[in-house]
Design a protein around this nucleic acid. Sequence first.
RNA 1: GAUCUCGUAGCUCAGUCGGUAGAGCACUUGACUUUUAAUCAAGGAGUCAUGGGUUCGAGUCCCAUCGAGAUCACCA
Length: 585
Amino acid sequence: MFFEFQPFLDGIKFFRNFVRCDRHTCVVCRDKNKPFQQQFAFCDCLFYRNPTFAPRFTIHQFTNSPIHQQRMTEQELLRRESLQKLRELGIEPYPAEMFEVTAFAADIVANYKEEVLDDGTRNRLNYREVALAGRIMASREAGKAMFMNLQDSSGRIQLYLRRDDFANAETGDAPMFDTVIKKLLDLGDYAGVKGFAFKTKTGEVSVHVQDFKFLAKSLRPLPVVKKDAEGHVYDAFTDPEQRYRMRYVDLTVNQEVRETFIKRSKIIRTIRAYLDELGLLEVETPILQPIHGGAAARPFKTHHNALDMPLYLRIANELYLKRLIVGGFDGVYELGKMFRNEGMDRTHNPEFSMLEFYVAYKDYHWLMDVTERMLERVARAVSADGGSVIKAGEHDIEFAGPYRRLTMFDAIQQYTGLNVETAGEPELRNYCRQNGIEIDATMGKAKLIDEIFGEKVEGHLIQPTFLIDYPVEMSPLTKKHRSKPGLVERFELFVNGKEVGNAYSELNDPLDQRERFEEQLRLAARGDEEAMAMDEDFLRALEYGMPPTAGIGFGIDRLTMLFTGQTSIQEVLFFPQMRPEAGER
RNA sequence: GAUCUCGUAGCUCAGUCGGUAGAGCACUUGACUUUUAAUCAAGGAGUCAUGGGUUCGAGUCCCAUCGAGAUCACCA
């Protein structure tokens, strides 16, 4: 016999392994000598503790289905119990009707006013009738009174409840207070409360609750993060894996995480407003593309069944936006997701957000001016004081223009003393070898320059810096420099040692563009998986004629990291890509 | 992809030389009608990531796997 009935009837405590079957809460007594499938569960739903509810046993044979193997903790079981008990008492834990909210926690805390009258009583001047809704995040019982913290989207406010307010005038019974609120309410439950604002003896603005309503029961315990008077945080929910996998918990419990994402939204809104003011048209272009172009990266590949053809998730939208310029729009922009099938790390997520905009009859100098104005505006929108300075680690970064403009060759000269313009390839190779920069035989002069730059210069560019005039080999879509042979009219913007934007005067010479594509094809033939594919339709568009155009792309996620002081891209994406959890595969 | 570090209660973490699994908060029961990291008393809660191995005995040592983080590589 591997289980006995009597201890089960006496109480749950004899059993340690709880599982959930598809319909009920179960208790299973496991016999480790038998295979899992042969172990049995008792299933009587939620009232095994209450003697008035005769256990309704069903004995289930286990299957291996994952749902059978989901074990519940004691606290989860108790919450299911209180859910069931609420229903028994005629209280719906998940009501359907609206709860009309008339006030927010932060507003009451900030704006509540009262006056002290001559006789010492207090006269409440506002918030005399409020209804607010949110999660109950803390609760402190003090005899026949109770304090809670309610958290809504604006912040937290203390609630004060008195047994007297819920007592029956004749009988003195207060089941709503004694049983429902005191026993069946759990931390994390959503509640709607009605009452009035007041100040407690200790001066905290609170809501005296006269009416309490369950809006949604929470069946899992939230991490309880506490803060003391000095601001020390206890038991913070910090494990990055859990925070990213369960962002809803992270957002509930960690207020500063919410702030980061509110800032992200503000950054995007500010950019959009600025570009709209410039008169650009916001557009949407295909995410599913038959030819992935516009950048050097490996794509995600998928398949369209009806057309029976491969499609790629876009790695860039550049070629489509230029087609729109060909079509006669003076300026277009798109804010959207790009997808690159590459490694993941602190600054790379497989899907990420880009802003690209293209404006006809402009060049890259104009783009630099626009960039300065746009970023200054974003900085002022997100900084605490409305100023243009943003703190990034130990650096104060000034976003008000003009930014330093430095040619790539000058930058390298300045930080290494190397004159790459006059230096030959062997000299550059020597330099790399002496400075521990990894190179291989296939690298041409342009690639070597890029390596030296990345290794020796990039990290020094803390204040916003436009790095201009790149070698032509690295930029297959960029117009040749108006006066410097071998270079293109391109800049990248570096801030805090990282690239945040990439821009150029667009190549609009269709014959030159065809040659550049052909060069890319040669790279692809040599095994370069990131080389661009020939896009005949794009060339056809250019042949119809594209006006001189300036175009720029910004990594919105990295921009957000910069403006929110985050060092990991995962902190600025609600749901960063993760490997599947155990059991999800 | 490589290397290092980590995975113990719902959360944050201890766990000595290999010898019965620990704390605070959370939870349960009780007391308290202005508390606030509420307090006081008592109690319960664990597949020590997973699977193997060594051993009389493994949270601890070894191997593999899974997941996470950091560094590097890759990456316009």
